[in-house]
């Protein structure tokens, strides 16, 4: 497989690999390391890939074995789901791949409708990598309030994505809801 071909396929499949790993392992830093490990594994084993098969299924399968390899160490910290669930998750991610791509596309629109405070909160937590307690401290809110705000934001985004995919209009997110 040529480099450009590999890169194009990886770019297409990487979100599914990341989703699978984050579904199976709750530590974002570990997930980031494992995504890179899978990318390297896939690149090294690219000659084994059968072009007639689905690349996403191939690399997500590789991600499962990568996660299983690390599970013994990580399990003590309650961060990795049980092996039987990893297998089910692998099948689900591969089967839902197209839908996940469509939802990801709709998310860009919905994210733009979030208010400034929700955007800042998401940025601190997800891109700054801060734990909820630290996000709460920086926003001068209680831990519980921030946890609830996160849950509401996720729920609002989920509803927005579904309305968007159904072709229904979506209003801006109410600031007080998040």
């Amino acid at each position: 497989m040529e480099r450009t071909d590999f890169e194009a396929r990886w770019a297409q499949s990487e979100p599914q690999v990341r989703t699978f790993l984050a579904a199976g392992c709750r530590d974002a830093a570990v997930v980031q390391d494992l995504v890179q490990e899978v990318a390297l594994d896939a690149w090294r084993k690219r000659s084994d890939f059968n072009p007639g098969l689905a690349f996403t299924a191939w690399v997500v399968g590789m991600a499962r074995f990568t996660l299983l390899r690390h599970r013994r160490d990580l399990a003590r910290r309650f961060v990795v789901l049980a092996p039987d669930l990893l297998e089910s998750l692998e099948q689900t991610v591969v089967a839902e791949s197209e839908l996940l791509d469509r939802r990801r596309g709709a998310l860009g629109h919905c994210r733009g409708k979030l208010g400034a405070s929700a955007t800042k909160m998401l940025d601190l937590r997800l891109n700054g990598g801060l734990p909820l307690a630290e996000v709460a401290r920086r926003l001068e809110r209680t831990h519980g309030a921030v946890r609830t705000a996160f849950a509401r934001t996720r729920e609002w985004l989920r509803t927005c994505i579904e309305r968007r995919l159904a072709g229904e209009p979506v209003d801006d997110a109410p600031e007080e809801a998040v």
């Binding site: 989703t19 669930l85 689900t92 839902e96």
Partner: peptide, 29 residues
């Protein structure tokens, strides 16, 4: 309890995967 709930129904797995995908997409936008 989460693992038990995930094993109960494939729909639970799909909902879980969608929730994780949403969060990871926010992280990597």
């Amino acid at each position: 309890r989460l693992e038990t709930w995930l094993r109960e129904d494939p729909a639970h797995l799909r909902a879980f995967v969608q929730a994780v995908s949403l969060q990871e997409s926010l992280r990597t936008s």
